[in-house]
Simulated scan of single mutants.
Amino acid sequence: MVDPRKRVLVTGGAAGIGRAIAARFLAEGARVAICDADRGAVEAFACEFPDAISAAADVTSEQEMATFLEEVEAVWGGVDVVCANAGTGGPAGPIENLSYAEWQRCIATNVHGCFLTCRWAARLMKSQESGLIVMTSSTAGIMGYPLRSPYAAAKWAVVGMTKTLAMELGPFGVRVNAVCPGAVEGPRMERVIANEAAARGESEEAVRQSYVTGVSMKTWVQAEDIANSIFFLASDAGRKISGQILAIDGHTETLA
């Protein structure tokens, strides 16, 4: 079980995986704060979960994140679990066809957002000598991913950050792990499939099917699968797990 007094912060928490994480902890009575760049999704989240702290904030904006994180710190005084989850799929296509602006946007959301979130979490957790940080990487962070070079590069960077921060913060009683979701069923993945289909010159159905055939268990992942794994990491049963890269994907054999 997770201590219901735990203070849990989730970036990109108003939809998809982030929302599932927030809902899982809220169901157990934990205190939860989320931010998301999608203002409409934040408003919908706030209506459903009025006891949670929720804010519209872009993880690539140092000022917006500072405002959100300062509010959370003022209310809670500290934090126990931080899920640096916000991300974007980025563009699809051969690298020679991608613009520098597309590259920068993908790296900023997936990497800079983790940096701003973890920098704040590290300060608080070191002072309280406890805490858990979980970053959302991807199976693309442990494998090559043709036609998705910005996304793969960003998610590999998240893995490197996870390993490094586990070393930096471990002596202070702070654990750092990353989860690597596979193909998570939902609207976000449908957008990814559409982009990849256009880049490959294939039908969306063919691309959709490739995500199943490339997985040993021949199945999609649900957002709740990711949330349940993070909930375990935050429980007493996971208290010695740190520096680990946990793939939750039914075993991806290939992304090619």
Rank of each mutant, 00 (worst) to 15 (best):
residue 206 A to S: 08
residue 199 A to M: 09
residue 199 A to C: 06
residue 203 S to P: 11
residue 197 A to V: 00
residue 203 S to N: 11
residue 206 A to Q: 09
residue 145 Y to H: 12
residue 149 S to I: 05
residue 203 S to L: 06
residue 117 T to L: 05
residue 180 C to H: 11
residue 188 R to L: 05
residue 200 R to Y: 12
residue 156 W to D: 01
residue 117 T to G: 04
residue 193 I to A: 01
residue 124 L to K: 10
residue 165 L to I: 09
residue 140 A to K: 00
residue 193 I to V: 14
residue 159 V to M: 07
residue 167 M to W: 10
residue 145 Y to E: 02
residue 199 A to W: 15
residue 205 E to T: 15
residue 110 N to Q: 09
residue 198 A to H: 11
residue 137 S to F: 04
residue 117 T to C: 07
residue 115 F to W: 15
residue 168 E to F: 14
residue 175 R to N: 13
residue 114 C to Y: 13
residue 197 A to Y: 02
residue 132 L to I: 00
residue 115 F to S: 01
residue 160 G to H: 11
residue 160 G to R: 09
residue 114 C to T: 02
residue 194 A to K: 09
residue 196 E to I: 11
residue 122 A to I: 10
residue 211 Y to E: 00
residue 211 Y to S: 00
residue 204 E to I: 01
residue 181 P to F: 03
residue 157 A to F: 12
residue 130 S to Q: 14
residue 157 A to E: 04
residue 158 V to N: 13
residue 114 C to K: 04
residue 141 G to R: 00
residue 122 A to Y: 04
residue 135 M to C: 14
residue 180 C to N: 12
residue 211 Y to W: 09
residue 151 Y to V: 00
residue 180 C to D: 04
residue 142 I to H: 07
residue 133 I to R: 06
residue 110 N to F: 15
residue 158 V to R: 12
residue 123 R to A: 11
residue 210 S to N: 06
residue 161 M to A: 04
residue 200 R to P: 06
residue 118 C to N: 15
residue 158 V to G: 09
residue 118 C to S: 15
residue 129 E to L: 02
residue 135 M to S: 14
